[in-house]
């Protein structure tokens, strides 16, 4: 029954948790070696339509995990399951040594530590870029207005958005909006970043701007899970690539293997279609 005990780690403040981690006081002795995020046999169905079946994968700290596959293969659903936006129908998701698929876990506690960026940006249109970026730090993480602003301005500056801090999202180009959405997610200083086809809605010229940001984050050791159609980019930054087909992970491996010499016929077929070779 230990698995369904309320999870005290997600009942604690971030600050407390960090201090505990520094003091080596983590209840799970495996914390340093165990994966940050571990997915086991996850199943998700809408009615009779099975969207995810027996999906298992691990994400270690510093990993950049890429999910590839055609639309409808379950990439987005998997990402939404990871930060509990979608309840799963079976299987287990473990984050930082705690089972977060437990109904007794407070989903908000989990989401505070997981950032997400959506394909359609999903910035709040009634707030300026800066206000978008300081919303969660101020109201969820309890930062003072000034601290939240300083943090947001630093990040906006770093990603070339300093001059747009006071603009409303709809005044910006798609690429700028998506970078702002990335900064908004980063302002919460998440342990892992989930990116759901963040360049799919952008024109090719702007894709580069956004990918540059992700590249820089990857170089800085940010843990990320991303669903993407950018194969060249996946090959460049991924530590592991998973190919999803009809809700199952058909093939996994390092990008230089999976994207170059896939073992499965269906992976080969998919790659030749998207690369257009």
């Amino acid at each position: 029954m230990s698995g369904i005990e309320p999870d005290e780690d997600f009942g604690r403040d971030d600050e407390e948790r960090r201090r505990a981690a520094l003091a080596g006081d983590l209840t799970s002795g495996l914390a340093t070696t165990a994966p940050l995020l571990s997915v086991r046999d996850v199943r998700k169905a809408y009615g009779r339509q099975v969207v995810l079946a027996d999906v298992s994968l691990d994400v270690a700290r510093g990993d950049v995990v890429c999910l590839i596959g055609s639309s409808g293969s379950g990439k987005s659903t998997l990402l939404r399951c990871l930060n509990l936006l979608e309840p799963i129908d079976d299987g287990v998701i473990v984050f930082d040594g705690r089972e977060i698929s437990d109904p007794l876990v407070d989903a908000r506690r989990v989401r505070r530590r997981i950032g997400m960026v959506f394909q359609a940006y999903n910035l709040f249109p009634h707030l300026t870029v800066l206000q978008n970026c300081t919303l969660a730090p101020r109201h969820v993480h309890g930062l003072r207005r000034r601290e939240a602003r300083d943090r947001a301005r630093d990040l906006l500056d770093r990603f070339g958005l300093a001059e747009h801090a006071g603009s409303y999202p709809d005044r910006l180009s798609g690429g700028q909006q998506q970078r702002a959405a990335l900064v908004r997610a980063l302002c919460a200083q998440p342990d892992v970043l989930l990116l759901d086809e963040i360049t799919a809605a952008l024109d090719p010229e702007r894709v580069g701007d956004v990918l540059d940001v992700v590249r820089e984050l990857a170089a800085a050791g940010t843990t990320m899970v991303l669903a993407t159609h950018e194969m060249a980019f996946a090959r460049e930054i991924a530590t592991t690539v998973h190919f999803l087909d009809a809700g199952r992970i058909l093939e996994s491996g390092p990008p230089e293997r999976l994207l170059v010499a896939p073992r499965e016929e269906r992976t080969r077929a998919f790659l030749s279609r998207v690369v257009g070779g």
């Binding site: 495996l30 165990a34 571990s38 046999d41 129908d89 287990v92 473990v94």
Partner: peptide, 26 residues
């Protein structure tokens, strides 16, 4: 840490039955 244990995987073609963990969660 029983929670981190993998749940017994079903074979792809077998009809799905909720795992013990899922029944517990329900």
């Amino acid at each position: 840490m029983t929670s981190a244990q993998p749940v017994a995987a079903t074979s792809p073609d077998a009809p799905w039955r909720p795992s013990e963990r899922e029944r517990q969660r329900r």
